[in-house]
Design a protein around this nucleic acid. Structure first.
Lengths: 228, 228
DNA sequence: ATATTATTTTAGACTTCTCTAAAATAATAT
DNA sequence: ATATTATTTTAGAGAAGTCTAAAATAATAT
């Protein structure tokens, strides 16, 4: 049996490992879960005893395959519930996180599979994050930061990096949404802000900071992206 | 803040009080929650300190108005979730209880109000139990045990007393469902079983034990019920 | 009315998860 | 290479909820 708290630790560890694949530190986990390093160490021992993580004192943590399966399953439930809230219950994409955080711990296979079916088996959640399948497979083309595209590139917005309500609400106000076509009109050298055209109509400026938090996939073939 | 466990105690107390309105004993609560009397006593002190119940040593428990409000709110959530599972996710009425038991503790006003709206504001759950409104009001005509009706009475089935899957599955097999018209054809003196006609078509026999677990409302005006 | 039985409460201990403070280890700076 | 700093772990204790065994109270039977 895996407790509510253990599930949260595994999910946090998964999220911290995901981007780079490197072992995660005690402090990083403590910060993510708003708890103290000492509490984390206690829990790491427990998770290690249960073979859910690979852990050696002072050496950081990775997930075992068993732990990864659990983490992906919670992520699957979280993202399906977010989708449900937005698609069926009129929630906005900046309102779903806290509720999904609770719903993800509901334990019923039939329930989550029926939700999946009810939503017609979505591949991504309302923020564009991929929904793992029952086996934990993620099957979505890889996106890139909008900040790495070049002048005249045309792309489709596929996701966000920052999930905070303030950022999501800013995007709403600016008329930037998942699925939009975004064309890079140019970059202002002064502050590295980008001029973009949304859906061939609205032309707006976004800061480089914003561009670094938008994910997209290129449509045309003008040239290659550069690192920022 | 009311914990998960406290919510469960309040709900259990509410359910035990409901039928007769009498103070509830420590042992009754312990049995309902599959726990020990000593644990119950501890929790009763805590709930009493929080003014959620009226409790004096050895004298049994009733709910305070605050406690009743909490209990009704959980009941509301439980029954709305049951309805959701049956109406939208293809659950059978004998499958919903355990999942709803988890879902009822999800804390989000917006969520439960949207579920209510999504279901078009149902008045009763899949077992015919009334769903309290946001204020805790129950607004459904009072039903009676099928065992208390008389020969030639015609009634509509409105609910069940026993909620066990085995009983619900028995009703399914016998073709007895909520909303059915039931006519009392007669009573067999030998074992007090009833012969009934369902929806003017199927004629079957049910034991008095079964009749005591079916709730109904009379349609015609033949005569008056007697106690069993 | 008192003895017996049943119920309820108290006392003390255990589990899970948390914390603070101190000790141990690792990383960094000169 | 060693001193300083930062990170991590250990030790010990607290809160919530549970348990068993024993004590206190209430109910019942004669």
């Amino acid at each position: 049996m895996i407790s509510f708290t253990e599930e949260n630790y595994l999910k946090a560890i998964y999220k911290l490992i995901e981007p780079e694949g490197e072992a995660v530190t005690t402090n990083a986990i403590a910060e993510k879960l708003n708890t103290k390093a000492a509490s984390v160490t206690d829990m790491l021992k427990k998770l290690s005893d249960k073979k859910l993580i690979n852990y050696q004192k002072y050496q950081g943590v990775t997930l075992s395959s068993k732990g990864k399966r659990v983490a992906l399953n919670i992520t699957r439930k979280h993202r399906l519930w977010e989708m449900f809230l937005v698609e069926k219950l009129n929630f906005k994409w900046d309102e779903v996180h806290d509720v999904a955080e609770q719903l993800e711990h509901i334990n019923s296979n039939k329930l989550i599979e029926q939700i999946d079916k009810f939503l017609n088996f979505p591949k991504v959640d309302p923020h564009g994050d991929p929904i793992p399948d029952t086996k934990g497979k993620l099957n979505v083309p890889k996106s890139h930061l909008l900040s790495t595209f070049n002048k005249n590139d045309v792309c489709t917005m596929t996701g966000v990096v920052d999930h905070s309500s303030s950022f999501l609400q800013y995007l709403d106000k600016s008329g930037i949404a998942l699925g939009n076509e975004i064309k890079i009109k140019g970059r202002i050298e002064f502050d590295r802000s980008l001029q973009i055209i949304i859906n061939k109509r609205a032309s707006i400026f976004i800061s480089n900071e914003v561009a670094k938090n938008i994910l997209a996939i290129k449509i045309n073939e003008t040239s290659h992206r550069k690192i920022t």
